[in-house]
Amino acid sequence: MLGLLETGSGFWSAIIWIVVVLVIGSIVIYIRNKGEDSYKKNTEQDKPFISGNPEKSKEESHLGASHIYWGFTEALKGYYNPLVKMHTGNINDYSGWIIVITVIILIMVGVSG
């Protein structure tokens, strides 16, 4: 069949996947369209709830890229600080890394026989 990719321990077919997604998706849409009984239009249910804080204007509410994954980078500080420090941007270090890795590989290839 067209689109059947053998991976050695199974197969992958994008066509079958799309058919499955369409079937599941139509079921989901059907359930969603049945609606929710407790919802009433034009009440406080329509308004966003920000823990009691006043709602900001739309232009101010956009979250900049630096704020995203703040917790992730904060938690992994011990990993990130040395890593960022390693990227010095100094051309001496760039060539230094190449020489060091070349020497390591020369030794590895030479020793392995």
Partner: peptide, 8 residues
């Protein structure tokens, strides 16, 4: 080279 590293 220590100054020429705005990209890092």
């Amino acid at each position: 080279t220590d100054q020429v590293r705005r990209l890092r």
